[in-house]
């Protein structure tokens, strides 16, 4: 679906943000892109909808080279929710905001109404529909940005740091929501620092450092590799930290889930009783 081949990208100020990145995202994948501030995560995902074009190498989306397609066309299939919602919100009411892209894509009024209704309810924004997005809290603005992207039903949803400013409950809702989207066949790409959030979602993890991909694998293996995650300025999930201290007892170290951890400990104790 998205094919990144040996991509280099240099910003106009000569900062080389990507240095030979290759990555294949298949339809229905759920990928978390992780790494320290400045590792090139956002630069990479901005290539997926053509916002940035590679300096060298190619990015193809559904077989089409992003250099030969407009951002508007690519966006129809790839929805991008930015890190800072203020960069993407500008309408006077939440309702208008969510309808904006649909109007741009030329949907009929009736469909627009339906989709707006659907997206607003989905993200729990019904009571704010007439509010100005700028009167809402940071977490709420983030959900407006997400609603406005989901409304046009793109195949791929890219979320840049979706958990910033969200409390635990909202994060949990967001997690369930993303997992559900993915189960419905949507391809989901999340750029995030939030280790515990990733540990709970258990996606494929692409770890980046200094413009390169360091490792690409399932969450459990990547996040429990203490050496790699530390190099990428990430702290292993708390459960895996606990288990790293128990390896002397013959317990596995690559555990990230609370309930899996419990079962292993119960097994260990039970076996000896």
């Amino acid at each position: 679906m998205i094919e990144v081949k040996d991509v280099y990208f240099t910003y106009p100020n000569n900062v080389e943000a990507l240095k030979g990145v290759s990555l294949n995202i298949r339809k229905g994948d759920f990928v978390a892109i992780m790494g320290q501030n400045g590792a090139g995560k956002t630069t990479l995902v901005k290539h997926f909808n053509g916002l940035l074009k590679p300096t060298k190498g190619t990015v193809t989306v559904n077989g089409v080279d992003t250099r030969e397609e407009s951002v508007a066309k690519l966006s129809r299939g790839i929805g991008f929710v930015f890190q800072n919602p203020d960069n993407q919100l500008f309408c006077e009411t939440v309702e208008e905001e969510v309808a904006f892209a649909l109007r741009n894509f030329g949907f009929e009024d009736k469909i627009i109404q339906k989709r707006v209704e659907w997206a607003i309810n989905l993200l729990g924004l019904a009571k704010h529909r007439q509010s100005s997005p700028f009167m809402l809290s940071g977490g709420e603005r983030k959900r407006v940005a997400l609603a406005s992207v989901l409304a046009w039903n793109p195949d791929v949803v890219i979320l840049d740091e979706p958990t910033i400013g969200q409390d635990y409950q909202q994060k949990e809702k967001l997690r369930q929501f993303i997992v559900q989207l993915n189960a419905q066949g949507k391809t989901v790409v999340v750029v995030t620092h939030d280790v515990e959030f990733v540990a709970e979602c258990n996606p494929r993890v692409v770890l980046m450092a200094q413009g390169e991909i360091v490792v690409d694998g399932d969450a459990k293996h990547v996040l429990t590799n203490a050496k790699l995650v530390t190099e990428a300025s990430i702290v292993p999930p708390q459960i895996s930290q606990i288990f790293m201290g128990l390896t002397d007892l013959g317990l596995p170290f690559d555990i990230i889930d609370v309930y899996e951890a419990r079962d292993i400990l119960l097994d260990f104790l039970g076996g000896d009783l």
Binding site: Q169, K171, P237, Q238, V258, R262, L269
Partner: peptide, 28 residues
């Protein structure tokens, strides 16, 4: 819906199964 640390959640999950740690841990 406070984001209780995972260390504390593991303690709680174990307690439910009858395994008691000496104290409530708040970090790894």
């Amino acid at each position: 819906g406070v984001g209780i640390p995972k260390a504390t959640r593991l303690y709680q999950a174990l307690r439910q199964s009858g395994v008691y740690l000496n104290r409530v841990p708040v970090n790894s």
